[in-house]
Design a protein around this nucleic acid. Structure first.
Lengths: 345, 345
DNA sequence: TTGAAAGCGCTAACAT
DNA sequence: ATGTTAGCGCTTTCAA
């Protein structure tokens, strides 16, 4: 038996058609098939027709892993977010996904659970996959994360906050300014004691900055800061209710509360309702994000509108343009925010 | 000049350390480095120490693309979902992600926008990446999607609904039964005209089945179906408000409404409030999902609790076990649901 | 215990 | 217009 040709599909992929399969079936070399795929005009019409037919017959789809190995481009964009169950973040990712999909990029998603070191682990792993670019939530990361990313030299977009010194690019708004603006609004309305309920600031620069903005606005208005008026908690509705209960117990004379997220504010609002504390007469409330629910609840929630979807979309566009070799005019995009005065304060 | 050795890093990856770099620095062959990485006990202690040192010094991380090419395993699990900005889905993905991450799998996410053909496009593309497994939302897919997946032979988990004939595995609950149960509850409470507001059923078997459950329960109770009592819309709070307005206008005598999602129900609830329609006295309302907001609104929302996070988590576990070669006892997991009677109906 | 060779599926560079 | 060669970075035989 002289069978150096009896190659039983050594590859583990059972049904997959390879370039070489197509080439053999069309009696051409693999390069000709590659050309039909990438530069069809360079192939004679007859040959092209034959190859194309085989291509469709065998339902050939390129192996993106092999292609990635040689081209050194994966077509993968990673996004590291703290938690997906958060309207703000989910919308950013939806925007990112929709901007990237038409350009042929796939999204690799990692949840860090509000941990900078976990973020670092994810970034390292994603770099091992030769990702073409990455989106990070927020602007504070471990030194090692930054080092790895700079060394990799890929486009990096930080999102949801702003900074003068981004790793590469950043798109978001100033959480400090936004929180200060809404706090100032409460001050102007004349509320005496203004409290704060926000998310834990640990590895969460957005939450940290919102609290800073609150403190800054109060200080500027000449008020004394009372840590007892501030409660930090997890970022959900039930936590908002509990935090409100805690705050009322601790400072019964609290007159207004700035909540660093609408989810928290809505929880706080309903806690007030259950206690028959009129809003805003007894306690005024302000939120942050302008979720759909904010406009629906009664009283409707005074809050701060931030362009969630847009942030993801712009981030995706910046990545897309950079990878296409186009110039990206601005590396720092401040999307701004908008105060939305409603009935709760 | 006799320099066949002057290889200026031909690879485009600038800083990346390769296996061969480590090998050279440690004066061993690449195979020895591979062994230190995968079967350290097979390497002499001294050699191992030397290699390990170089490994850390150079901060070597394996190239997962190259590894994937030869091992035919990518370490990638894909998830195709309709839309991320949906608490139900976001929580499923969060559960999936958390179950998969410890096992070292990365998540490739694709949004189909409630389109079966878009899902097909994504599945095809993901298969080109040699994904190890895939999660699909719902149980209805194009024939081609199913064909490709069966041919690929990878673990497939469909989630969020149930079926007797999954492509491979399925974890969810019966949307028909759940919707029927809550509708039956409304019937038992004695409400005369019971309406329905739900998401568009196009390429959305969960929505379709919920409407079926509603119709089934009404029919079984001997009631005549009135299409005028049913409104289909998009899946968000504002749409819920509008749909409620439409329904009230069309059937002013509607006495109760089953909303196929809490987001819709909450929108409907606030629409009733704005019209000073007492809930449940004038109109009773029931939702579906048991989002956090359902327990908070006043009146609290009667709804159906489904284990969102758990569905993703179980799906992840099934995938993990299958890829680890462990036997998966049940390919069809019915997580069930739970009626949550509250004040709105 | 260690290494040499071959090849995963594709593409860039160089022939013909 | 088409084909041949080499090689991406890793792992799997097979040898030494």
């Amino acid at each position: 038996m002289r069978t150096p040709r009896a190659r039983p599909p050594k590859s583990l992929s059972p049904g997959r058609t390879r370039l070489s399969d197509v080439a053999r079936a069309a009696s051409v070399s693999t390069m000709t098939v590659v050309r039909v795929l990438h530069e069809p005009h360079k192939v004679a019409a007859a040959t092209r027709a034959r190859v194309t037919r085989v291509l469709t017959e065998t339902a050939y789809t390129p192996d993106l892993v092999a292609r990635g190995l040689v081209s050194n481009k994966s077509g993968l964009v990673a996004a590291v977010i703290p938690l997906l169950t958060n309207s703000l973040i989910a919308e950013i990712i939806q925007g990112l996904s929709e901007a990237l999909a038409p350009a042929g990029f796939h999204l690799l998603l990692g949840a860090s659970g509000f941990s900078a070191t976990e973020e670092e682990v994810l970034v390292r792993a994603f770099l091992s996959r030769r990702i073409d670019a990455i989106f990070l939530t927020g602007v504070s990361h471990t030194k090692e994360t930054i080092r790895m990313l700079k060394r990799a030299g890929i486009p990096v977009v930080e999102g949801g906050n702003v900074t003068d010194r981004p790793i590469d690019m950043v798109v978001g708004y100033s959480n400090v300014k936004a929180a200060a603006e809404i706090t100032r609004y409460l001050v102007k309305r004349g509320y005496a004691k203004i409290g704060y309920i926000g998310a834990f600031p640990q590895d969460n620069d957005r939450a940290r900055d919102r609290r800073r903005g609150y403190e800054l606005a109060l200080a500027r208005s000449g008020r004394k800061l009372d840590p007892g008026l501030c409660v930090e908690t997890t970022l959900d509705m039930d936590a908002g209710s509990h935090a409100m209960a805690t705050l009322i117990k601790r400072r019964p004379d609290v007159r207004a509360v700035f909540c660093s997220a609408d989810a928290i504010a809505v929880g706080a609002l309903f806690e007030c309702k259950r206690r028959n504390f009129a809003v805003p007469e007894r306690i005024a409330l302000a939120g942050f994000d302008d979720l759909a629910i904010a406009g629906q609840v009664v009283p409707s929630l005074t809050t701060l509108r931030v362009p969630r979807y847009l942030i993801g979309q712009r981030a995706g566009e910046m990545i897309r343009d950079r990878l296409a070799g186009l110039p990206v005019k601005r590396r720092i995009v401040d999307t701004g925010f908008e105060l939305v005065p409603r009935d709760s304060a």
